[in-house]
Amino acid sequence: MDDPVADLLIRCAAQDRTAFRALYAATSAKLMGVLLRMLQDRHEAEEALQEVYTRIWLRAQRFDPARGRGMTWVIAVARHLAIDRLRARPIATEEADYEHIPDSTPRAESRLVALGEARRIVDCFGTLEPARAAALRGAYLDGLSYADLANRHSVPLNTMRTWLRRGLMALRDCMDGQR
């Protein structure tokens, strides 16, 4: 499958700096979007973006095109860095911040369906209870912790953990079943 980001990553692994510039041009807006949404702070997102590209360059050799697409890999680098930063924050800040997070779920979902992409995961989300699907999205897209999500949905922490673990299992069965 055509994957220009993967090609650039492979060239970065071979120390090709021109490819690194092209990679920044091709992916920085997306990664900035990821970091802004998760960190909810422009200054921190910009600082994190520098760190993300530093990691991408230093770790490009670990990218394996057989295991996934290039864009998925660079987004994973950005998400994991954001999650690490969120977990290192004092808990009070996390709770104070999450109120500002806009809930774009229905719009985004219909857009995905309209694009003909992601139909499988959207279909599978449709098989989950709405509150559990929303919790899974909040965890993945906004980097919310079990504690954040338990607060948001007014359920005990352990209940939230069970929701998400079962939700993941249900998603996996649903998606793998459709292959």
Binding site: A29, E46, M71, S104, E117, R137, Y140, M175
Partner: peptide, 20 residues
């Protein structure tokens, strides 16, 4: 990562300053 990757479409791109 691959299973959940479709959720990545929901991250709206945001203009990044040129930090290169």
């Amino acid at each position: 990562e691959a299973r959940l990757a479709d959720l990545n479409d929901e991250y709206a791109p945001a203009e990044a300053p040129d930090l290169l």
